[in-house]
Nucleic acid binder design. Structure first.
Lengths: 364, 364
DNA sequence: TTGAAAGCGCTAACAA
DNA sequence: TTGTTAGCGCTTTCAA
């Protein structure tokens, strides 16, 4: 598949509803010598070779202090900046880490991404953030950035089904899985024990006297969804409770409205649940809203437990009982694993499980 | 007073830091010939010159169909991928757009970023997302990526104070301002009419019979904060209403807790406001929570109006009355302006104002 | 300690 | 239509 670069942007932008205030004409610049100039200019003006300038720029030890000063002074004076395009070609690395998330509008992913970003920057990398929409095609095309030397490594938060596809094509590329992972894929990963976490949520509801517990789950392209479902099912079974199919619904999108709709549907039926466990706080927020919309009180009529512990979840009414994930650490760990892998491609990089915890608030 | 404190945080999971499950050892690879190989190999195997391969790869017209097929077949067979590091050096462009946001944890920015990303990708660019924390130092160091040829252009959502600093150092660099802008800086921008929007919010409250209207504002490093304050003040004055200093508070962070704390403080005093206008929905969500915490009912005791119209805002109880910003379009337009600027550096690029609108829901 | 020079892999001007 | 070749700006041997 050849690259089809769409160079040039012809769009003259008629922007209809735009009341264009004032127009900014190109500033000074003109066809100026771009910015900076090259290392050669600096070398010449400093009276040294390009090699010496390079050595100074890269902090190599074997440069006479006087020479170093001279070079640094010239760099300062000319405002020279290294051209990292050239450096990257020469050193064969992009210093970019690719992060692929199914939906960065979800605050859960936003927080993880911050963790990745912080750690990456700390190690001299920048993060290229790509929203895949959990779509295998987009995922694949982003992943291809590794092969095109646009990124040095990747962190994938997409569904296991998608990860399997990646793994089939490219076992050897440096990537790691975060939050969503299948140990069988054979790449380093970090996540939590979803099975146990879901069990904890359900056992909590049972301990509070709930008996008709529903599950609003993500779609089962996600392994975590399967694991949480199993955790839910086994916890019910262990308690000798009914697990009706009608009390299990999969949604294909974790946004608020999906939760609201699913909840309203759940309680519409004859034998309505007295508790709902939703596998994401965004869903749970919607659930609470949906229940309110059909006149059910939380937690009196229906208890609600979410998953993630977003900042938001403590703010709503009633505040959400939920399973907290260490989002920041998940991101940081993923980045660390990837960096390890990049530093030593033949090193053995572990799979890591981080602890979750139940946070009890007012909703259930 | 912050939200309902976490009543019981039962640490159900002892799991020490990292229970490393299984270890992933480096896969096949070894010291393999990296991925791909170069254009020269493809050329040789296809029996053509590198120039021809390059032409095929870039979709140039003047290649005989038969030749093209042969090259394409070889590319396919060998799994060759272009090295964009090399291409970028040669063409002197990185095909990366830098987006600098004060806080991408804020859903407002997340939605704008999606707009930028969508449009950028549509034009063959990727987006480098940088969280500056509204810090001038970080901003400056990110901005330097332009000079180091790491990014072709930048979109800045940071405070005007920070933008002024940038502008002083680099009028000629290709960047645009989004949401937060000062026409005087002389770079293309897109945003809304903050003065009028704030006025609309306040006039709505007045029309609903509110007389003691408080303002919870962002800190005044942001020009938009000054504009919204002026809109608020003038709307009050035009209605002949009191504008007490005690009813105006600036917060330095737009998160939920900041709103909750500010609201609780506002109603603690003797002459409490009967309405609160918060310049961000995240703040407003916190405000509603804070008021609930001190036993005030919304909207009966205190009406609340927010700003932005996040997806979340329709979900909470009561649902938030707010000023909607066209977030997606703001992002897309910013990207479009930047792309225009890159396509033709001497073109006159306009400042663009997009429409806002008042969304009336239950909170005020 | 410093410099000369070879390339990294690609694109594009120029020739054929 | 195709090939030859000169760089893009840098890092890094290898020699001095």
């Amino acid at each position: 598949m050849a690259a089809q670069p769409q160079r040039g942007v012809s769009a003259s932008t008629p922007v209809s509803q735009a009341a264009d205030a004032d127009a900014v004409t190109a500033t000074a610049a003109g066809a100026a010598p771009a910015h900076g100039g090259s290392i050669a200019g600096v070398a010449q003006r400093a009276g040294v070779s390009v090699a010496t300038v390079s050595r100074v720029l890269n902090g190599h030890a074997n440069v006479r202090p006087a020479t170093r000063e001279r070079v640094l002074a010239e760099v300062e004076a000319s405002g020279y900046r290294v051209n990292e395009l050239a450096r990257n070609l020469r050193t064969a690395e992009s210093r970019l880490l690719l992060t692929m998330v199914p939906d960065f509008g979800n605050p859960f992913y936003a927080e993880i991404v911050r963790g990745i970003d912080a750690l990456a920057r700390q190690h001299g990398y920048f993060m290229l953030l790509c929203d895949t929409g959990a779509d295998e095609g987009r995922e694949r095309s982003y992943f291809d950035l590794l092969r095109r030397h646009r990124a040095d490594g990747a962190i994938c938060l997409d569904p296991a089904t998608v990860q399997h596809a990646l793994a089939a094509e490219s076992t050897a590329l440096p990537w790691v899985a975060c939050c969503e992972f299948d140990p069988a894929v054979g790449v380093p990963y970090v996540g939590i024990d979803n099975y146990r976490a879901a069990g904890d949520a359900v056992r909590h509801l049972i301990a509070r006297g709930r008996r008709r517990i529903a599950l609003i789950n993500s779609d089962e392209h996600y392994l975590y969804a399967q694991q949480r479902r199993d955790g839910y099912l086994d916890a019910l079974r262990d308690a000798g409770l009914d697990a009706r199919d009608a009390w299990r619904v999969d949604v294909h999108c974790l946004d608020y409205d999906a939760g609201a709709k699913a909840a309203a549907a759940l309680v519409r039926d004859g034998e309505a649940p007295d508790a709902i466990f939703a596998v994401s706080d965004t869903l749970a927020v919607g659930v609470i809203n949906g229940l309110r919309g059909v006149g059910r009180r939380v937690p009196d009529d229906v208890a609600v437990v979410g998953f993630d512990d977003l900042a938001l979840s403590a703010q709503i009414d009633p505040p959400l009982t939920t399973i907290a994930q260490p989002m920041r650490e998940l991101g940081e760990t993923a980045a660390r694993l990837l960096l390890q892998r990049l530093a030593d491609p033949r090193a053995s990089v572990p799979g890591v499980l981080l602890p979750h915890r139940l946070v009890v608030r007012g909703s259930g």
